[in-house]
């Protein structure tokens, strides 16, 4: 029973924080509202005995949101929310779309005849996940790894302005890179 109350509370918190993301003026607050939503979901996962995934969700999403905060403040007109303004288009249509998707999903969720629970819960969900990643589902992990690597390269290429020709000269023959601020390595 205590678990039920906790899950419902966390669920409402997650949704409320999710709504707050698009309601608050301040970009910093929007970012951290989203983080609160993620942490609430991590709390529910914890209640579902998915300890590792819950903690990893909290870990990854915190780092993502900290980085997100920088971008929000860099690119938004009103980072601290000192001058209230709205930056939405087609709010009514979007609200209708969001509400109808929620309604359709909810109707489905409560009318579908869900199958019974298959099998029993393992002693250790973390071990189950680890063994499948390194065993039966290794292909998924390999694809994820390659995808992440491609993302790192593509992201860096898109985001940086200065390439090696800017750093090492047109002939690439400079011994030390020409950077506005020198790094800590003697190269």
């Amino acid at each position: 029973m205590a678990g039920d109350i906790a899950v419902v509370t966390l669920g409402m918190l997650a949704v409320a924080a999710g709504i707050a993301v698009f309601v608050v003026d301040s970009m910093a607050r929007a970012t951290f509202a989203l983080l609160a939503s993620f942490l609430a979901v991590a709390g529910i996962l914890l209640a579902l005995d998915l300890v590792y995934l819950a903690v990893v969700t909290a870990l990854m999403m915190t780092m993502e949101m900290a980085v997100m905060a920088i971008f929000m403040i860099m690119f938004m007109m009103n980072p601290a929310g000192l001058m209230p303004m709205t930056m939405v288009h087609n709010a009514r249509g979007s609200a209708v779309a969001g509400a109808s998707v929620f309604t359709v999903l909810t109707v489905g969720i409560w009318t579908i005849d869900w199958p019974a629970r298959q099998g029993t819960q393992p002693d250790d969900a973390t071990r189950q996940l680890g063994e499948s990643i390194m065993g039966g589902h290794m292909l998924v992990m390999l694809v994820i790894g390659i995808g992440l690597f491609a993302t790192i390269i593509a992201g860096t290429v898109l985001a940086t302005q200065r390439g090696r020709y800017d750093r090492f000269g047109p002939e690439l023959d400079a011994r030390r890179p020409h950077d506005p601020v020198a790094g800590g390595l003697p190269r």
Partner: peptide, 22 residues
């Protein structure tokens, strides 16, 4: 005691990170 103690310790550090930025 969880099956992910080390990740827990790390997650607290990540949260600390966000908190200090704030």
């Amino acid at each position: 005691s969880t099956s992910a103690d080390l990740v827990w310790f790390n997650a607290m550090e990540a949260l600390l990170w966000a908190a200090v930025w704030l």
